[in-house]
Amino acid sequence: MTAIPVTTPTASPRRARHRRSPWWYLGELLIWAFLIVMAIIEFAPISWIFATSLRNPADSFKLPPDFWPTAFHWENYLAVIQSPRIQFLRFFWNSLKIALLVTAAQLLTCSMAAFAFARLRFPGRDLLFFGFLSSMMVPATVTLIPTFILIRQLGLMDSHWALILPATTSAFGVFLLRQQFMSLPGELVDAAKIDGASFLRIYWQVLLPLVGPGLSALGVLTFLGSWNNFIGPLLFLRSWENYTFPIAIVNLQGYMGTGNRAHVLAGVMISIFPTLLFFLLAQRFVIRGIALTGLKG
């Protein structure tokens, strides 16, 4: 009796392809069109500021406005640096010093408080955290007068400490970093406790390096807020040598806005540079933080 060979069906090398409907392509096109329009809307004011900062003062109010440089008068930037109306290097250094100190202080205090709220257990923890969140609902302008009275009673008027101390921590920073700490697996803390690590060491060496994205985001937002702070220096500072760069830009406008518009916008472009540089530096730490949070099973 001869065996009949049985042939098994072989899988076809061609796989069935899922055809996308025309509506899918239309949706993608609409999304890209919307993103391009929004990018143009966001970029247009900066492009106009840069283009106008390189023009002659007489062409600053030209209509319709030109969003691309029509002239390249780089001496406008040199005129800002050497302007007799402001002490450029002093004002620039004052803003940079205050912004860096405030940013460093917030990263330290907010991360420590966020670690405590996320990983420590103590009576009244949730109630205290709710109080932090409630303070975010109070507008900053409401606290200006109490802050002014407190700063005056402490004898900190006309000093940079009047701008640094009230900004050493923030409820938003605590909330942001608490969410980052809570997203980390609890096995990391348990393993560190088994190895005999204290809570301070767990915070500093185990968990803090893993919240790089949150620290970078908070650092960028804090630096931007401190660098662009105008009402604070105007309210607490009195001496000319203590003023910051936003005050310098206002002084460039002159009385009743009669100053050189091209010089004013050149000063605005100079003020954008440190914030852009700070963002580019922090972006590297965001990528590193995302890479560090990848845990293998």
Rank of each mutant, 00 (worst) to 15 (best):
T2E: 09
A3L: 11
A3E: 14
I4L: 15
P13G: 00
P13D: 04
H18G: 08
P22D: 06
P22W: 15
Y25P: 11
L26A: 15
G27S: 06
G27C: 10
E28H: 11
L30W: 13
L30G: 15
I31G: 08
V37R: 06
V37Y: 00
I41N: 05
E42S: 14
P45Y: 04
A51I: 09
A51S: 14
T52I: 04
L54A: 07
R55T: 10
R55A: 10
S60G: 07
S60I: 04
K62S: 15
K62I: 11
D66T: 11
D66F: 12
D66R: 12
W68Q: 11
P69E: 05
P69I: 08
W74M: 13
N76M: 10
N76Q: 12
L78F: 05
A79T: 13
V80Y: 02
I81S: 09
S83I: 03
P84S: 08
L89W: 15
R90V: 10
R90C: 03
S95Y: 07
L96V: 14
K97R: 15
A99Q: 14
A105R: 03
L108M: 08
T109F: 11
T109M: 13
S111A: 12
M112W: 12
F115W: 06
F117V: 02
A118F: 00
P123I: 10
G124S: 08
R125E: 06
L128H: 02
L128K: 09
F132N: 05
F132R: 00
F132G: 01
S134R: 07
S134P: 01
M137P: 03
T141N: 09
L144G: 04
F148P: 01
Q153K: 12
M157L: 15
D158V: 10
S159L: 04
L163V: 00
A167C: 10
A167F: 09
T168W: 10
F172Y: 10
G173S: 07
Q180N: 07
F181H: 04
L184C: 02
L184T: 05
P185A: 10
G186M: 13
D190Y: 09
K193A: 14
D195R: 13
D195L: 06
G196L: 09
S198F: 11
L200W: 14
L200G: 12
Y203W: 14
L207S: 13
L207Q: 04
P213D: 01
G214Y: 01
G214M: 03
T222P: 01
S226G: 08
S226D: 11
S226E: 08
S226M: 12
W227T: 03
N229P: 04
F236I: 01
L237R: 00
L237Q: 02
S239E: 06
F245G: 00
P246Q: 10
I247S: 07
V250H: 12
V250T: 14
G254S: 01
G254I: 00
Y255R: 14
T258N: 12
H263W: 13
A266T: 02
G267I: 05
V268H: 03
V268K: 03
I272Y: 13
P274I: 01
T275F: 02
T275M: 11
T275H: 01
L276G: 09
L280R: 11
L281K: 08
Q283I: 07
Q283C: 06
Q283N: 15
R284K: 14
I287E: 06
G289R: 04
L292I: 08
K296Y: 12
K296P: 09
